[in-house]
Design a protein around this nucleic acid. Structure first.
Length: 438
RNA sequence: GGCCCCGUCGUCUAACGGUUAGGACAUCAGGUUUUCAACCUGGGAGCGGGGGUUCGACUCCCCCCGGGGCCA
């Protein structure tokens, strides 16, 4: 998201590059998840063709150039050798002797003097003393290049100007700088973002990270809300603004104001924020997104919704809009308008006591005789019934609610009845009375 | 183990030497109320610790502690 905001704000292009020097980690499904997440967030980047580049030849070429130029050398030392060497040299960075033999790795020669400075946009200059850095391995014994060589070469070849990535790469950066230096290329600008920690404590893995975005989609969070929330993780405005439209984010976001400490994802705050966005959604869009959300579910909910008259769909959205925080939460509240009441034994047991029978009869009679069947009329009408029976409103309204929806929770009872319509409302109440009978 | 990063309410954050340390979520207490939410009002809650520098430190320096990352 930060990459995207930065690209949008600066008029540059966003390049999402997935380095795959280690097949064990960058699995195709992993890539798939990242792309899914981007699509879900509705970041309108110019997707272009998804290209795969086989850079092995180029990396090999660079490797041999570096060896020939003396900036790198073959070294068959093992990890144990290196450890022994370091112990003997007071913890200084490992320096090997060039020895070309079968299975030897290639190491980059690191200078003994001076330091390598990562001039990070977010953290300022970070100093690494060269003498403490190992002559690090840039190619395995079998000739395959290692990450720090590959990214540096690819950054240079692609003309990358800004690298925005996770904090976990900060200590890799001096190595990449050293490679770039050996190559004679100018380094890009670097910005290392703080990592996200999950509520459970640890950092989010690439897999879990992408998977959790998946979960957000399934729960029916709006992309705009998620974008807003995510932008506020590690970044904040000076004037304490919390709700920011995407246009405002693009305008106000600046990478150098991003914080340095890791953040914990707080689902409750996202939920609250999503509710704010849901309530401000134009009704047509609310309806569209609800329909879309239902399609990702099973059991014919989407079909029932789509088959309903447009006015009913619209009304349903209107009466649930200020109650639901997520799309997933909206549907159960208005489901009764499109499908039969659910069977909730607990609700029935709690509300449908024998004395409820009289309430329901009185209500049904009143509804049958009602003139207009809208929210206001019903409120007056049923208010009279409550008064006549001398009951607490709750004792009358809850049985009606259970009768028409099957549960104890729904939108306002008058809204619900009006939306359901006279015939169906009366039918469901009569059915409840009958069921109460035995 | 070496190197590096980070440390403000429970959580996300604002502050860039001078504020009663601000806001948001959450929480608590009221209000509203036909259910559940939503909404409104109010309260509690924080600078990891210790040294310095300074007239004055959340802000600068050092040490420690704690958390994390990379390499090995």
């Amino acid at each position: 998201l930060y990459n995207w905001l930065l690209a949008r704000a600066s008029g540059g292009a966003l390049v999402l590059r997935i380095e795959d020097t280690d097949r064990e980690r960058s699995t195709p499904e992993n890539v798939e998840q990242i792309l899914d997440a981007l699509q879900y967030l509705e970041l309108d980047w110019d997707e272009g063709p998804l290209s795969q580049y086989d850079r092995r030849d180029r990396h090999r070429e660079v490797l041999s150039e570096l060896v020939e130029g003396g900036q790198a050398y073959y070294d068959p030392s093992t990890a144990a050798d290196v450890r022994a060497w370091k112990e003997a040299h007071g913890g200084a960075g490992y320096r090997g002797e060039p020895r070309e033999e079968e299975g030897a790795a290639i190491r980059l020669r690191v200078p003994d003097e001076r330091e390598t400075v990562v001039d990070d946009v977010i953290r300022g200059p970070v100093h690494f003393e060269n003498r403490t850095q190992d002559d690090f391995v840039i190619a395995r014994g079998d000739g395959t290049p290692l990450y720090n060589l590959a990214v540096a070469v690819d950054d240079a070849d692609m003309g990358i100007t800004d690298v925005v990535r996770g904090d976990d790469h900060l200590s890799n950066t001096p190595k990449q700088l050293l490679v770039l230096q050996a190559l004679g290329s100018d380094p890009p600008s670097y910005a290392h973002l703080p990592l996200l920690h999950s509520p459970s404590g640890g950092k989010l893995s690439k897999r879990e990270d992408a998977a959790s975005v998946q979960e957000l989609r399934d729960a029916g969070y709006l992309p705009a809300a998620v974008r807003n929330y995510l932008a506020l993780l590690g970044w904040g405005t000076e004037d304490d603004t919390t709700l920011l439209s995407t246009e405002e984010l693009v305008e106000r976001f600046s990478i150098d104001r991003v914080g340095r400490s890791p953040a914990v994802f707080d689902a409750r705050k996202l939920r609250w924020m999503n509710g704010r966005y849901m309530r401000e959604l134009p009704l047509e869009e609310y309806e569209r997104r609800l329909a879309e959300h239902l399609r990702s579910r099973s059991e014919g909910d989407a079909e029932a919704f789509d088959a309903a008259p447009p006015e009913l769909r619209r009304t349903a959205c209107a009466i649930v809009q200020d109650k639901a925080q997520t799309m997933d939460e909206a549907w159960p509240l208005i489901r009764f308008l499109f499908r039969d009441p659910v069977d909730d034994p607990k609700a029935w047991e709690k509300v449908m006591k024998p004395e409820a029978r009289a309430m329901l009869s009185a209500a049904a009679d009143a509804l049958r005789g009602a003139g207009a069947f809208d929210t206001d009329a019903l409120e007056g009408l049923l208010g009279d019934v409550v008064e006549r029976l001398g009951e607490k409103p709750k004792n009358v309204y809850q049985p009606i609610r259970v009768a028409i929806t099957g549960t104890t929770v729904s939108p306002g009872i008058f809204d619900s009845l009006a939306a359901l319509g006279r015939d169906e409302s009366v039918r469901r109440i009569d059915a409840a009375i009958e069921r109460l009978g035995d």
